[in-house]
Simulated assay, not measured.
Amino acid sequence: MPRSIWKGAISFGLISIPIKVYGATEQKDISFRQVHPADGGRIKYKRVCEVCGEEIPYAEIAKGYETPDGRMAVLQKEDFDDLPLRTTKAVDVVQFVDAEEVDPTYINSTYFLEADGPGAKPYVLLRDALVRSGRVAIVKVALRSRETLAMIRAKDDLLLMHTILWPDELRDGEFASPAEDVTVSDAEVTMAGSFIDALSGPFEPEQFHDAYREALETLVEAKLSGQAVASVEEDTGEQADVVDLVAALRASVEAAKRRRAESAGEAAAEPEPAPAKRTTTRRSTTKKTDAGPTDGAAAEEKPAKKTAAKKTAAKKTTARRTPARKAS
């Protein structure tokens, strides 16, 4: 079980809900160390004071704020703990809003909230009230030495808290918007909608995987075992400029439908090879001989044809003689 990173209470009107906060996410990326390529030795960094030249242990390092005129304010852990803020130990609910009103761009990190001690009943009360109202709670909380906005919402049996960036922490993206004179036709938008429909479906995150991380793991294993790494052929052809968007989207729709059919198992099964069927038939009708399976089958086929020809000729001769007897 992970360790809680914060302990306090949700201030829900006159109701106080003791909680513990846990990180809800973790990075699964592959971490690397800086090493010397010649011998694989790790590169280490020392924390050295520029004034006295001594190496300072991490536990003894404080935080300092330097003013524009060069003055330094040194802050210890106790200074942060004693800040005159309610949010250092309390999550203050300041508003309830519809979840759709919170732009996902503002969401920063996600945390699990666990009821602590006698907080189980008010915890369930807030959770069920949020579900019934269809709203989320906007709160203020101080986490990791800074106050932040956050959103509390109900998910299954839990309360989740998503920290929210302050408005001035979002950059202005106006520079990235297309030029105002760029337009698209109704036919292009309709075909783009068809492509969206072809790839629409329920969001199932478990069906996706991190191909880049898997490739790195394969590379590391190959390096450790001294094996060569299989290279992937790159498409060196230059991509042509898209002139007819409708034609390009129509081809994209067809390709998406094919991929969906293959992934869903709707593609037709391949037929069994014909030679296997002929071999089975011959083995079932050919008598066993001491010859090998291929030579014996060939040896038996020729006499069989001759015998069949003789029997056919005999039948024809009998058929010709029989009418002659009846006529006499």
Rank of each mutant, 00 (worst) to 15 (best):
L130P: 08
V141M: 11
L143D: 01
P122H: 09
A142P: 04
P118S: 14
A129V: 13
R127Y: 09
L143C: 05
S133Q: 10
E114I: 00
A120N: 09
P122F: 07
D116A: 14
R132P: 01
R127S: 10
A115F: 01
P122M: 06
A129L: 11
Y123H: 02
G119N: 08
V139K: 03
A115G: 00
V141H: 04
R144W: 10
K121T: 11
D128E: 14
L143V: 09
R144C: 09
K140T: 15
L130Y: 11
L113F: 01
L143I: 13
K140A: 10
L113Q: 05
S133V: 08
R144N: 13
V139M: 07
I138Q: 04
A142V: 14
G117K: 13
V124I: 14
V139D: 07
A137R: 01
G117Q: 10
R144P: 07
R144K: 15
R135P: 09
L113W: 07
V131E: 10
R127N: 09
R135Y: 12
G134P: 11
G134I: 10
L125P: 04
A115E: 06
R144M: 11
G134R: 11
A137C: 05
L143R: 01
V124H: 04
K140C: 00
V141R: 06
R144D: 15
A137M: 01
Y123R: 00
P118Y: 10
V139G: 02
D128C: 08
L113T: 06
